Simulated assay, not measured.
Amino acid sequence: MIEVGSVLVSEELIKEEFVCNLSKCRGACCVEGDAGAPLQQDELDILAAVYPKVRPYMTEKGIATVEEHGTHVVDADGDLTTPCVDGHKECAYVTWENGITKCAIEKAYERGEIDWKKPLSCHLYPIRTTAYPEFDVLHYDRWHICHAACSLGRELQVPVYAFLKEPLIRKYGQQWYNELEESIALL
């Protein structure tokens, strides 16, 4: 681990390489798993506020899920997450384009209808954050569905942290990211 401000960064984020390869995985991370996308407490009001503008981009099943369960749920582990269609796997905010998943929230953002891109946990994936009162720990979440992303990352020689520069800056700021790069250069 390296320490950058009040954040501990797993060295795997520096050593491992990763670039999403949607043509291969088809966005499986949005439809696989045992719960929805993790949400932060401060994202709940944002999600509720943007929902009316996101709704037109959602599938009928996704809309029905949100209408029944709300814009977020508490999962079996007690964590805040996006709701899933039929209670598991597919995120309620998933939509499809040419057989590839797309986030309805992100579509509304890209069209200038909202100013929130998507939940931070989605934007940061495959980085997962464990938050403690005084510090965060960033670690690399390995998942078999991302094999093609690992291969493409190795081919292009893009470390995980570099691929996720934008969401890391979104979370911790440009100065923090600059400090991360300085720390990595000293390794």
Rank of each mutant, 00 (worst) to 15 (best):
L186H: 11
Q157S: 15
H72G: 12
I63P: 02
E166C: 15
L180D: 05
Y51M: 15
G27H: 06
D45E: 13
C25N: 10
N178G: 12
P52I: 01
G99W: 07
Y93V: 04
T82K: 07
L47C: 07
V4G: 01
N21E: 14
P126H: 07
T81V: 02
T130P: 13
I46R: 00
W96R: 05
D79S: 10
R142Q: 04
K107M: 08
T82A: 04
Q175T: 09
W143R: 01
M1D: 02
G27N: 07
E12L: 15
P133I: 08
E179P: 01
P38Y: 04
S23G: 13
K117C: 00
M1T: 10
D115F: 00
E110Q: 10
V31Q: 00
V85D: 01
I105D: 03
E181Y: 11
V137T: 09
E11F: 08
P167W: 08
G153W: 00
P159M: 04
K165V: 13
V50G: 02
K118T: 02
G5F: 04
E43R: 01
K53C: 07
D86C: 05
L187H: 14
C84D: 06
R142K: 05
S23D: 14
D75N: 02
G78E: 01
V19Y: 02
Y93P: 00
Q157P: 02
G173T: 03
W116A: 01
A37I: 05
L22R: 08
E134V: 10
E3A: 13
I114M: 00
A92P: 04
D75C: 05
G27V: 07
H72C: 00
L47D: 01
I100S: 11
L120S: 01
Q174T: 10
I105N: 03
P83H: 15
L47T: 00
K24F: 15
Y132L: 01
